[in-house]
Design a protein around this nucleic acid. Structure first.
Length: 463
RNA sequence: UCCUCAGUAGCUCAGCGGUAGAGCGGUCGGCUGUUAACCGAUUGGUCGCAGGUUCGAAUCCUGCCUGGGGAGCCA
């Protein structure tokens, strides 16, 4: 008897076929002479209904041992359902309980739970409809990302997770050490002696693989990273995690405009692919989580992204028929409310803002000819805000060295990064995409903690 | 980190100085096709923690902890 995944039975199963399924009981409904089970194995949003008649061997005992959450194996014949709501159902000849679940204590009930509660049982929440759908979509997004780059000849490179660069300028870092924190070695002046630490100097968890990706791009032309990233910011929002996944393509022989083209094609590919691979899950999100999920996705696939410079964005904000809490002035960074106005009210689609003032952007971004702005780009998505941030990189040695000093860093500590400009430097560009934010965007889930299996946030790393 | 709201039954919440409540869930019973099944009964509590005010505190005050929403930082 073939072991079948439930998604396969629901899509292509035929009556009279024999099948074995393995999964977890979502609900049990008992009537006078028979009972219904709904089994889910994670392959699909939908369950497979199993019907047991009272003449089943040990009917009462078997039924008593099966409750919401029980792991079961059912073998039998697929039959056309007599009831409404499903095409096929399983009439088991054998029903085996692998692991029971005490209904008195099993936390998942046959009812809606709040996402806040489900976060407290993160080890079980993937067995719910919504969270289950989230992680199928998350997987589909990841696969679509690899597919996009692989089809275009990008190398997936594995940037280090441990770094000794403390000057990437992207937020607070987590220290890592093998020193005894209760009694660390000290220098003569009483400071912690990192020369005796594992790497002989302070080390951190990476906040970005970009600098390493640039080095690899200057050998392979087109590369991307896709891996975990860490920020020790004390951020308590629905859009931030201490550990999250980031995608960072980097392209040699590419300028800002090519970079934007790639970012747009990239987002379109992800949405198009996931719409095709997870239609049931996306439909579920559209009905139950956010009624605009499908519309938003189609909007992204079908329409050009709006593009404007920072200077133009400031002009648009100045003539906006709305009062902003924060000032709008050339030279100041855009606030959340400004970004939301541009993406949600003015353009109603993703907006790419380019050429920001040099003073508010990172040292590695290429200085424009005006001497005031850099070749930066942010892709602002409705509801989520900044989903992509990128730039053309400064490829001119002298300019880069000057910007490193200007940012208060020492060129010596970035010697290898500067070396890339000394030997065979070429114009190059890239961007970073917050993977969880894409999943949020796709699913309409409002809290980023619900789109990663085990979220890490300040004061929370339980699982 | 700042602003703001909230912590009462397994879950979602009502009660806001005077005997601790509802719906759902669980349990038991009923029901020949259910599908958030339905109907009846029943079970269930350190009212987040620690102080204080009061004859009396879930309720008022103070501090702390935890969670939500918003902001900052950013992806």
């Amino acid at each position: 008897m073939d072991v079948r995944r439930i998604i396969d039975i629901l899509r292509t199963g035929q009556a009279k076929e024999a099948a074995e399924i393995r999964g977890w009981v979502r609900t049990k409904r008992e009537l006078k002479g028979f009972a219904f089970l709904e089994i889910n194995d994670g392959s699909a949003l939908a369950n497979l209904q199993v019907v047991i008649n009272a003449d089943f061997p040990d009917y009462e005992v078997v039924l008593k041992s099966i409750n919401t959450g029980t792991a079961v194996v059912a073998r039998g014949a697929l039959v056309a359902s007599q009831g409404k709501g499903q095409r096929l159902e399983l009439k088991p000849s054998q029903l085996e309980v692998l692991g029971d679940a005490d209904p008195e204590t099993y936390p998942l009930q046959k009812k809606r739970h709040s996402f806040e509660f489900l976060r407290e049982i993160a080890h079980l929440r993937s067995r719910t409809n919504t969270i289950g759908a989230v992680f199928r979509v998350r997987n589909a997004c990841a696969a679509a990302i690899h597919q996009f780059f692989q089809e275009r000849g990008f190398l997936w490179i594995h940037a280090p997770i441990i770094t000794t660069n403390d000057c990437e300028g992207a937020g607070e870092l987590f220290n890592i050490t093998s020193l005894d924190l209760t009694n660390p070695p000290r220098t003569e002046v009483g400071e912690i002696d990192y020369r005796q630490d594992f790497f002989g100097k302070p080390a951190y968890l990476t906040v970005s693989g970009q600098l390493e990706a640039e080095a690899m791009a200057l050998a392979f032309s087109n590369v991307y990273t896709f891996g975990p990233t860490f920020r020790a910011e004390n951020s308590n929002t629905s859009r931030h995690l201490a550990e999250f996944w980031m995608v960072e393509p980097e392209m040699a022989f590419c300028d800002l405009s090519g970079n934007i083209d790639l970012a747009e094609a990239f987002l379109k590919h992800i949405f198009k692919t996931v719409l095709a691979t997870c239609p049931e899950d996306i439909e579920f999100f559209n009905q139950r989580i956010d009624k605009s999920v499908l519309e938003t996705a189609n909007n992204i696939v079908e329409n050009e992204f709006a593009r404007l410079t920072y200077t133009e964005a400031i002009a648009q904000l100045e003539k906006a028929p709305r009062q902003f809490e924060f000032p709008v002035e050339w030279g100041l960074d855009l606030q959340s409310e400004h970004e939301r106005y541009l993406a949600e009210a003015l353009f109603k689609r993703p907006v790419v803002v380019t050429d920001y003032p040099a003073k508010i952007k990172a040292f590695y971004m290429r200085l424009n000819d005006d001497g005031k702005t850099v070749a930066a780009m942010d892709v602002l998505a409705p509801k989520i805000g900044e989903i992509i941030g990128g730039s053309q990189r400064e490829e001119r040695y002298d300019c880069l060295e000057q910007r490193i000093r200007g940012a208060g860093f020492s060129p010596e500590s970035l010697w290898w990064y500067l070396d890339l400009r000394r030997y065979g430097s070429v114009p190059h560009a890239g961007f970073g995409l917050g993977f969880e934010r894409v999943v949020q965007f796709m699913t309409g889930m409002t809290n980023i903690r619900d789109v990663i299996p085990f979220p890490r946030t300040p004061q929370n790393a339980e699982f």
